[in-house]
Measured scan of single mutants.
Amino acid sequence: MGKITFYEDRAFQGRSYECTTDCPNLQPYFSRCNSIRVESGCWMIYERPNYQGHQYFLRRGEYPDYQQWMGLSDSIRSCCLIPP
């Protein structure tokens, strides 16, 4: 099982949303994503809903700024857990 936490502000500040399963639409939970903490598993995150747009592969670790995962913007709208 994986676990990823999205934060609206840099350095793990602001409103957060924790996810443990695939989520095709993160828009209801936060308006922007400036930092991420991957506590377990590997995740693919996407800039648009329904697994569309630019995608980024994240391993376990801390990403205090969206540029840390080579993001082009602070828009993350869907995510899925990559099976081991």
Rank of each mutant, 00 (worst) to 15 (best):
S35F: 01
Y7M: 03
G61C: 02
T21Q: 10
R10K: 12
P49Y: 03
A11S: 11
H54G: 01
Q13L: 05
Q27D: 07
D9R: 09
N25W: 12
P24N: 06
C23K: 07
N50E: 12
G71V: 01
T20I: 02
L81A: 12
C23A: 11
D22K: 09
D22H: 03
G41D: 01
Q52K: 10
S16V: 09
S31P: 02
Q52A: 06
C19N: 03
F30E: 03
C23E: 13
I4N: 00
T5L: 12
Q52T: 07
I4V: 09
T21Y: 07
R10F: 03
T5S: 08
G53E: 15
E39A: 05
E8D: 13
D9K: 14
F6R: 00
N50M: 13
N50C: 15
D22P: 03
S35A: 06
T20F: 13
L26A: 10
A11N: 12
I4R: 00
M1G: 04
F57M: 13
S35L: 00
T20D: 08
T20L: 11
Y56N: 13
Y29H: 13
A11R: 08
T21A: 09
P24S: 07
V38A: 02
D22F: 01
S75N: 11
M44S: 15
V38C: 08
C80R: 15
Q52L: 07
I4S: 07
S16P: 08
F6C: 02
L81K: 07
L26T: 09
R48Q: 10
L81M: 10
C23I: 03
D9G: 13
S35W: 00
D74V: 01
T20N: 04
N50D: 14
F12M: 10
A11W: 12
T5Y: 05
L81Q: 15
R48S: 12
F6P: 00
F12W: 04
F6H: 00
C23S: 14
G53I: 13
W43R: 06
P49A: 07
Q52P: 00
Q27M: 13
D22Y: 15
Q52M: 12
G53M: 06
C23F: 03
Q27N: 07
Y51R: 15
C19Y: 10
D9P: 00
S35M: 00
K3I: 13
C19K: 07
Q52F: 08
N50R: 09
E18K: 08
D74G: 01
C19M: 11
R15I: 05
P49S: 13
D9E: 13
E18S: 07
T20A: 14
T5D: 01
E39W: 02
S16D: 03
R15V: 11
M1E: 05
D9I: 03
G53D: 11
K3S: 11
G2Y: 06
R15N: 12
K3N: 07
N50T: 11
T5C: 05
T5A: 05
N25Q: 06
S16F: 10
G71S: 03
F6D: 00
I76F: 03
I45V: 02
F12T: 03
E18D: 07
E8H: 10
R48F: 12
Y46E: 00
P49E: 06
N50I: 08
R48T: 11
I4L: 06
T5W: 13
Q52E: 06
Q27E: 10
T21N: 07
G61S: 05
N50W: 09
G53T: 09
R48G: 15
L81E: 09
D22R: 06
E18L: 08
Y63C: 05
Y17P: 00
Y7N: 01
P49H: 13
R10L: 12
T21P: 15
Q52H: 12
M70T: 15
D9T: 04
T21K: 07
F12A: 02
Y17T: 06
C19G: 11
P49Q: 06
F6T: 00
R48W: 06
E18V: 10
G2L: 08
F6L: 06
G14F: 01
Y66C: 03
P24V: 11
T21F: 14
C19L: 12
L26H: 03
P24I: 07
E8F: 03
C19T: 06
Q13R: 11
D65Y: 05
C23W: 06
A11T: 09
S35E: 00
Q27R: 12
L72F: 15
Y46S: 01
G14K: 05
E8Q: 12
Q27C: 04
L81C: 09
T20C: 13
E8L: 05
K3Q: 05
G2V: 10
Q52Y: 09
S40P: 02
Y51P: 00
Q13N: 07
Q13W: 02
S73F: 05
S31A: 07
S35N: 00
D22G: 08
E62V: 15
E8M: 13
S75M: 10
Y66H: 04
F12L: 06
K3V: 13
Y46N: 14
R15T: 15
D9F: 12
S16M: 09
D9Q: 13
F12G: 08
G14Y: 02
Y29D: 04
N25F: 02
W43G: 10
L26S: 08
R10W: 08
G14W: 02
F6E: 00
R15D: 07
G2K: 10
N25C: 13
Y17G: 03
F30W: 01
T20Y: 05
W69L: 15
N25H: 08
C19D: 02
Q52R: 04
G2A: 06
Y7P: 00
Y7H: 04
S35K: 00
E8G: 04
Y17K: 06
S16R: 08
R48E: 14
K3D: 08
G53S: 14
N25R: 05
C19A: 11
T5G: 01
Q13V: 07
S78P: 03
Y51S: 15
C23T: 08
E18F: 05
Q27Y: 04
Y7L: 01
Q13A: 08
N50Y: 05
Y51W: 05
L81P: 08
Y51F: 10
S35Q: 00
M44V: 15
Y51Q: 14
T5Q: 05
E18A: 09
I36F: 15
R59S: 03
R48L: 12
R48V: 14
A11I: 08
Y17H: 10
R15E: 13
P49K: 07
Y51D: 04
R10C: 15
Q13G: 12
G14N: 05
D65A: 03
D9N: 09
S75Q: 14
F12C: 12
L26P: 02
I82T: 02
N25Y: 15
F30S: 05
Y7V: 01
M1F: 14
C79Y: 01
T21C: 06
F6W: 02
M44L: 15
P28R: 02
N50P: 04
L26G: 07
L26Y: 01
I4P: 00
R15G: 14
F6Y: 07
I4T: 02
Y17N: 06
M1C: 05
G53Y: 10
S16W: 09
N50S: 09
P49C: 11
E8V: 05
D22E: 13
N25A: 09
T5M: 14
S73P: 02
S16K: 05
K3T: 10
P49T: 13
K3G: 09
Y51M: 05
G14L: 02
T21S: 10
F6S: 00
Y17E: 11
I4Y: 00
S75W: 08
Y7S: 02
G53W: 05
N25G: 10
E62Q: 15
S75E: 05
R48K: 10
T21E: 11
A11P: 04
M1P: 03
L26D: 00
L26W: 07
C23L: 08
Y51T: 15
Y7C: 01
P24M: 08
G14P: 01
R15H: 14
Q13I: 10
N50Q: 05
E8C: 08
S75T: 11
D65N: 15
N25K: 14
R10I: 06
R10A: 14
Q13K: 15
D74E: 15
D9M: 13
A11M: 12
G14S: 03
E62G: 04
G2I: 12
R15Y: 10
K3Y: 07
R10T: 12
E18I: 07
S75Y: 09
F12E: 04
L81G: 14
S35G: 03
D9H: 15
N25M: 12
Q52D: 08
Q13D: 09
Q27A: 14
E18N: 04
Y7D: 00
M1T: 08
E18M: 10
L26C: 08
G53V: 03
C33F: 03
D9V: 08
G53P: 13
M1W: 03
L81F: 11
R48I: 06
Y7R: 00
E8S: 08
F12H: 04
P49M: 13
S16L: 05
Y7K: 01
Q27F: 15
T20E: 12
Y17R: 09
N25P: 00
N25L: 07
S75V: 09
P24W: 07
N50K: 12
C19S: 08
T5F: 06
G14R: 04
I45A: 15
